[in-house]
Amino acid sequence: MTRVLLTGGSGFIAAHVLESLLAHGHSVVTTVRSAQKGQQILDSHKQYGKGKLDFVIVEDISKPGAFDSAVVSDSPFEAAVHCASPYHFNAKTPEEIHQLITTAVDGTTGILKGIKSHAPTVKRVIILSSYAAMVDYGKQMTHVYTEVDWNPITNEQAYQSAPFAYLASKTFAEKAAWDFVKSEKPSFTLTSLNPPMVYGPVIHSLSSLDSINTSNVRFVSLLKGSPSTPCPPTVNYLFIDVRDLALAHVLALEKPEAENQRFLVTAGNYSNAEIAQIIGEEYPEFKDRMPVGEALKLGERPATGVNGYDNRKSIEVLGMKYRPLRESVLGVVESIKGML
Rank of each mutant, 00 (worst) to 15 (best):
G8A: 06
S10T: 15
I13E: 00
A14N: 09
L18Y: 09
L21S: 03
L21M: 11
A23K: 15
S27H: 13
V28E: 08
V29G: 00
S34D: 12
A35T: 15
Q36L: 12
Q39K: 13
Q40L: 14
I41G: 02
H45C: 00
G49W: 07
K52N: 07
L53A: 00
F55S: 09
F55I: 10
K63M: 01
P64E: 02
A66N: 02
D68L: 00
A70S: 06
V72C: 04
D74L: 11
S75T: 11
F77A: 03
F77G: 07
A79D: 10
A79R: 11
A80I: 04
A80K: 01
S85Y: 12
Y87T: 13
H88G: 10
T102S: 06
T103A: 08
V105F: 07
V105P: 11
G107W: 06
T108F: 02
T108G: 01
H118P: 07
A119Y: 05
T121D: 13
T121Q: 15
L128Y: 01
Y131D: 05
K139D: 01
K139P: 09
Q140T: 13
Y145T: 15
E147D: 10
W150V: 06
W150L: 11
W150F: 14
A158P: 06
A173E: 04
K175W: 03
A176R: 13
P186L: 03
S187H: 15
P196S: 08
L209N: 08
D210H: 10
I212L: 13
N213E: 15
S215Y: 10
V217G: 04
V217A: 11
S226Y: 05
S226P: 06
P227L: 04
T229N: 10
V235E: 11
L238N: 09
D244Q: 13
L245D: 04
A246M: 04
A246I: 07
A246P: 08
L253C: 09
K255Q: 08
E257C: 04
F263M: 14
G268W: 11
N272Y: 02
A273R: 09
A276W: 00
Q277T: 13
I278K: 01
G280P: 05
E281Y: 03
E282Q: 12
E282Y: 03
E282K: 14
R289Y: 05
M290H: 04
P291G: 08
P291S: 07
K297Y: 00
K297V: 05
R301P: 00
A303H: 10
A303W: 02
A303L: 04
A303V: 12
V306T: 14
N307F: 12
N307Y: 02
G308I: 06
G308A: 03
R312N: 14
I315A: 10
R323G: 11
R323P: 00
L330F: 00
G331V: 09
